[in-house]
Amino acid sequence: MKEKLNKLSDPNISKQEEDQILEQVLKKQFDNDLRNKWKEKLDHEFGIKRNKNGFTNKKYLKIFIATAASIALIIGLQLFNTTPSDPYVLAQQYLNDQEIIHPGATKGISDENENRVLAIQMFNSKDYEQAASYFLNLEAPTEEDTYYYGLALLLNNQYNKAIVKFEENRTNSSKYIQELNWYQSIAYLLNKQPNKASSLLKQINNTDWNYEQAQLLLERINSK
């Protein structure tokens, strides 16, 4: 394990190996933390100690009642379906509810040009019109720029332009494919193109981002 931990500092470590080491190390740490936490709980709430003769049943009834009540509460919880039935309204609601923040410049781009910095600032200030104009003026837009440019257009209600930009992004690379499938579907819906939205929503797999929301949108489109 020591060797593995040291390997984390290796600049040539692969992402896969890095993930594997972090998973193992954090598991070890958190498992230890849980053991200590449960040891204390068993002692204080159940009267069970690791040392012999430490076990008593004093609080058993109290804990049993509390547990039963909690489980009953959970079982009794009912989820109320308050989502709108109109797919366009639902699409707009999803867009409004989702906080979209530009995470900043991509690592490695240190010679930030002014337009990119301003575009990001405007995007995160929710001034999407300004953000779009700065993205437009970028001389050599990256894939990330094009993606956020499309988002800025979508959030500025320029659905047609957003769709074009998303489509442009889609042909370049699949890095943002899950996001593109989702946001382009939303753009199609808000642009009153339910058939195109529907065909794109169907491409969202059950392990993809926003799969459940996509299914609900499909349901709403089909029932309209």
Partner: peptide, 19 residues
């Protein structure tokens, strides 16, 4: 890492994009 949640699941939970 500990909850084995996919990044897309976390994104959904936090209402942020996977990117």
């Amino acid at each position: 890492y500990y909850g084995k949640m996919k990044l897309t699941e976390i994104a959904e939970e936090q209402q942020k994009s996977p990117a």
